[in-house]
Design a protein around this nucleic acid. Structure first.
Length: 264
DNA sequence: GCAAAATGTCAAG
DNA sequence: TTGACCTTTTGCA
């Protein structure tokens, strides 16, 4: 279940598994049959990720994937088992296979089309070309609350519903603070924190935002119910101050926050 | 057996 | 702001 860290981690795994190989590409489900035929048998040359978008480069053609809310990828050792009927795309290389199920987007695009996708995406903290000052400009010009702007992929690419609540809690900033009132040094801190959290997510494959002193057990593998400060914890005690965690709708999603640590 | 929810996004009204 | 779409898992009859 994907925010930006999932996609960048996936990009790395796909690169390690398949780059330079001829791939057999099919669509057991059928909905990607014509796209699969365009790249079937070609060599995977490059893999690119921007926010929650993944691009697999076969010379001049790219397979563009967006997992949406439900998409999943299985990437494992060959031989591949009989595919489930919902497998939109299967790629098989020399030693590994990949199954993609439930994506919002799976399509073949040209390099020019790929460029237009990048153009409408904002700065991705996991990319070398990230521009935190550009993101800040957009935040300041926007009347919307910071908790809504953080989910806008044309401002910051890769942040999803978990990271938005968690990073704002860590910064002590209310999700309802209007973007134009967010001070520059505060934004700089949020950006830096977001970058570190996303990188940790790429490394571990999960979202962990709590400091050791805010967990029930301070060493060993972080337990699932210890990993987050506020996300999904409505009515439970804030890990930092003990106040009850609140949930509200913001930008059509639930946002979780602590009224004491993040005063309005 | 079915409804609801889940780390997402877009288009219609 | 709402509904539609993609799929799996969980919880309740």
């Amino acid at each position: 279940m994907p925010e930006g860290h999932t996609i960048h981690r996936l990009a790395r795994r796909v690169r390690d598994s398949f780059r330079g190989e001829h791939l057999d590409v099919t669509s057991p489900q059928g909905r990607f049959a014509s796209g699969a035929a365009l790249v079937d048998g070609r060599v995977l040359r490059r893999v690119d990720a921007h926010g929650k978008h993944l691009f697999l480069g076969f010379d001049e053609l790219w397979v563009h994937v967006h997992l949406g809310l439900f998409g999943t990828v299985t990437l494992a050792a060959a031989p591949a088992p009989d595919p489930r009927p919902t497998v939109r795309m299967r790629m098989v290389g020399g030693s590994r296979y990949l199954d993609l199920r439930g994506p919002t987007i799976c399509e073949v695009v040209t390099a020019a089309h790929k460029a237009t996708i990048h153009a409408r995406l904002g700065s991705d903290p996991l990319r070398a070309d990230a521009r935190p000052d550009d993101a800040y400009g957009r935040i300041r010009r926007r009347g919307a609350p910071i908790g809504a702007v953080l989910l806008d992929q044309s401002v910051v690419a890769g942040v999803g519903n978990v990271y938005r609540s968690e990073v704002l809690h860590r910064a002590g900033v209310s999700p309802f603070l209007p973007g134009r009132l967010l001070a520059e040094p505060v934004w700089a801190g949020i950006w830096e924190d977001l970058t570190a959290l996303l990188r940790a997510g790429v490394r571990s494959g999960r979202i962990v935002t709590t400091a050791p002193e805010h967990r029930s057990r301070r060493s060993g593998r972080v337990r699932r119910d210890d990993a987050l400060y506020v996300y999904g914890r409505t009515g439970e005690a804030c890990r930092r101050c003990g106040a009850r965690v609140r949930a509200d709708d913001l930008a059509a999603r639930r946002v979780y926050w602590c009224p004491t640590c993040q005063p309005e």
